[in-house]
Design a protein around this nucleic acid. Sequence first.
DNA 1: TTTCATGTAACTTCATATAGTGCGTGAAAT
DNA 2: ATTTCACGCACTATATGAAGTTACATGAAA
Lengths: 153, 153
Amino acid sequence: MKRDSRLSGVLHVLLHMAERAGPTTSDQLAKAMQTHPVVIRRILGGLRDAGFVHSEKGHGGGWTIARDLADITMADVYAAIGRPSLMAMGNRTEAPGCLVEQAVNAALDTSFHEAEALLIARFEQVTLAQLAADFHARMAARSSTPAQEHDHG
Amino acid sequence: MKRDSRLSGVLHVLLHMAERAGPTTSDQLAKAMQTHPVVIRRILGGLRDAGFVHSEKGHGGGWTIARDLADITMADVYAAIGRPSLMAMGNRTEAPGCLVEQAVNAALDTSFHEAEALLIARFEQVTLAQLAADFHARMAARSSTPAQEHDHG
DNA sequence: TTTCATGTAACTTCATATAGTGCGTGAAAT
DNA sequence: ATTTCACGCACTATATGAAGTTACATGAAA
């Protein structure tokens, strides 16, 4: 089953933005992410509507983070991209008339809802500031090659 | 993101088989599941290889459950279909050179692995016998229309 | 008024889950 | 023996959705 990488992508973009001083353009972020500028704009659209980032048009424009990194959790980002399903599995049919399927669905739903609740709870505990700190720790650990912080090779 | 319904499907098929006395053909199961016989054979292929069901060719052939329902857990069934990914989300890139992405991946992986472990643990606690019992309880509750146990409308 | 940058819609790939077809194999009934 | 039944499997077809791309409009600064 193919897995959604939007959450991973948004977090990645946000951390790259956080490493820069002024506004960052979609083009620059696309280069860093090895993708297309329009994809960046799509990814950040939800974040902008949720107030986590700000976008400016024209000369000197681009994207900036609108809040303190310590005030944005992974759960916030997850919500901003529309709370896509976390579970790769679903029921064959929802609201089935078949009682066998109802029994199966009930058993699966119970477990899946527990797992989703656990995930959301974990997401709420991790802020972008923590992720940035982890990144900087990795930077320090890779002391021999300190210029590769943006290496995507 | 589209969700895999194989686990739901296999459990459904197994419980339908359990309700019948002798062998059940792929055709009969396909009718009950409103799908194609080949789909049934594919679904049950992994279960056969794992020894949970038995298949017989020719006249009077079909599928039978090879073990006691109390000895088959949802985790067994999950394993038999190849342990497909349970999480709908993955990392943009695995083993990235980018330290930002490494930090993001690490944070996500931690949460996802926890959630997966929780799910597997729950699956291990539910046997097919329990699911069958739940089904029969639903049958009893729907006492006014007792002939609909195979209704898929 | 030219250049830069976002906002969006429409379109194209591309991956892949699911469904379906055709033919081969083996077992039982006649 | 031969017919019928049922699974096994390789292959094709279809549908869905994410990601990538193009095109153009909007708005701001040089």
